[in-house]
């Protein structure tokens, strides 16, 4: 019992679990853009960083309550998302991917050069406002919101665009408009995740938000199962915790991580839960159990 308590109150573990939550929020944003709407975004970390810096600056300079700076972080990211989305969402597939990747790199370089964000030295002195409870409240809200979106007229339009853009358009859906809306929500969620990150770490550095981080978030979404919320949760949890569990292999950690990415894709190209409708499986299981009674 005491051992359990000591693990539960160990600040390091709490930090790790909180980080999983923060990553999960960002991943859910990308889930909407890539998993549901089918649009490549290789610059998601940039939106996380925009939200992080914007909210941190709002807190530091305007002394607003955290909820408001979190909102500001989300809105700043969404605004940039829409500004990028307008011209670039006309591009398809890999072209959109490389454009978002380029945007992400530009954002990083801008943060390195800006005075107000502390440049390459980073931004310190952010008050610690987020905690594990707040993070998981936002996680639950985001998951709930994503489920609601997926089962709505709006969400069906996004899925239609993913499945067949031309057919979607002939069903009366304006693809560009809906893609921009999906981008706005997805980047908003990324910005919120960034705000939580900023007020948790109390320090931001542009190098934490490079394309490596963008691809890490993409990994969460793809390896878990593209288009599936349980898949995104599973992917984020496994991949965020993997480095912790791989600690014993020390310097071989990233070697194994890279090799795992390749093997996972080869054996489950649609992700761990790809093509599995978790709700249907659960329902089937319940029905079978009731039938047995």
């Amino acid at each position: 019992m005491e051992a359990v308590m000591s693990i539960l109150t160990n600040p390091y573990y709490i930090q790790v679990v909180t980080m999983v939550g923060i990553s999960l929020i960002a991943a859910l944003g990308l889930h909407l853009i890539t998993g549901i709407t089918g649009q490549f975004s290789f610059g998601h970390a940039a939106f996380v960083s925009i939200g992080a810096y914007a909210s941190a600056l709002v807190t530091i300079h305007l002394h607003l309550p955290f909820v408001l700076s979190m909102l500001a972080g989300g809105l700043a990211a969404a605004l940039c998302g829409v500004l990028l989305g307008f011209p670039s969402l006309r591009l398809t597939g890999d072209y959109l991917g490389i454009t978002t990747l380029g945007f992400g790199e530009i954002v990083r370089v801008v943060f390195i050069n800006l005075k107000i964000t502390g440049g390459a030295g980073g931004l310190a002195g952010i008050p610690r406002e987020s905690n594990i409870f707040l993070v998981y409240i936002v996680v639950v809200l985001t998951i709930w919101g994503m489920y609601r979106i997926q089962n709505s007229r709006f969400g069906r339009a996004l899925v239609a665009i993913r499945e067949d853009e031309i057919a979607a358009e002939t069903m009366g859906i304006n693809p560009l408009l809906y893609k921009i809306k999906a981008f706005a929500i997805g980047t908003f969620v990324a910005g919120v995740s960034g705000s939580l990150f900023a007020h948790m770490m109390q320090y931001l550095n542009p190098s934490d938000f490079g394309f490596a981080r963008s691809f890490e978030i993409l990994n969460f979404v793809v390896l878990g199962g593209l288009g599936s919320i349980p898949g995104t949760i599973l992917g984020t949890a496994i991949l965020s915790l993997a480095p912790e569990f791989l600690r014993f292999v020390k310097e071989y950690r990233m070697l194994i991580y890279g090799a795992l990415m390749v093997t996972m894709m080869i054996f489950r190209p649609n992700g761990l839960l790809g093509g599995v409708d978790v709700i249907r499986v659960l329902r089937g299981y319940r029905n079978r159990r009731e039938a047995r009674r």
């Binding site: 609601r148 979106i149 089962n151 709505s152 007229r153 709006f154 969400g155 809306k181 929500i185």
Partner: peptide, 9 residues
């Protein structure tokens, strides 16, 4: 119904 409708139902 739009985004708001989706969330609030």
């Amino acid at each position: 119904a739009g985004i708001f409708g989706a969330l609030c139902r």
